[in-house]
Write a protein that binds this DNA or RNA. Structure first.
Lengths: 124, 124
DNA sequence: TCGACTCGTAACATATGAAGTTACATGAAA
DNA sequence: TTTCATGTAACTTCATATGTTACGAGTCGA
């Protein structure tokens, strides 16, 4: 599939697609080919890829929106707040990533297939 | 304490302080007075206020940074992804808020007092 | 009553970062 | 050699949180 086609599917720009897919390529999840008949291709079995791996491949973006937090603040109050929050955030993040590790792309594909069948039945 | 003094402590602007403190006032956690000797005052015992309550008072801002998610997307793939993520996010958020509910401002004040004592000892 | 002080709030400005866009070099296949 | 595709740098746009200015309104003391 080309970046342009993917961009249309995702409602975005081919260059944005290349930026993101490039990260997945670095992680070995997809391959890309230039020129005629080029584009992106899945490189692994869907059942072996978890959302956890995607999160890693995409650079482990911050999970939480809360806390514009300075690490190592001078302010003692800020230090107390950080200390109190650190454990809670760490545990919640661990739980979330553990859940992500249980969800494979094959899981999603199966769910999609069911929705697709339902959609066709309802439509037709 | 005036908005201006709080702003200096927090490294921000008096109006920004008023905006945020106003939400805490609506929740009954602080009071404000105008005029001479006016400013902000804590309205409740620190041991009765949890971080959970602060989160509520501040409008329950989104906990997670992940997911520019449409609710009710047309796209069936997006629907599958949402369905898979919803449970994980809900559980992680519940865990985090539960932890927040265990932390009172008195907890933070005690921790701060210890840090302050250590700091004075080290300084002197 | 006057003046200093403070919050309340609207309106506007700035800064930050994500996303989008343009441009062009590189490589592959018909 | 033409066409199609990615790779990537540079730039622009957009969204939004934050900061700022301005001024109205209430409060207190002299």
């Amino acid at each position: 599939m080309t970046s342009e086609a993917l961009g249309k599917c995702l409602g975005t720009n081919p260059v944005v697609v290349r930026r993101t897919m490039g990260l997945l390529r670095e992680a070995g999840l997809v391959t890309s080919d230039r020129g005629h008949a080029g584009g992106w291709r899945i490189a692994v079995d869907l059942s072996t890829v978890t959302l956890r791996q995607l999160h890693e491949a995409l650079g482990e973006p911050a999970v939480f929106a809360l806390g514009n937090r300075n690490e190592r603040p001078q302010c003692l109050v800020e230090q107390s707040v950080n200390a109190a929050l650190d454990g809670a955030f760490a545990d919640a993040e661990a739980l979330l990533l553990e859940r992500f590790a249980q969800i494979t792309l094959a899981t999603l594909a199966t769910d999609f297939a069911r929705r697709h069948a339902d959609w066709r039945a309802q439509k037709g």
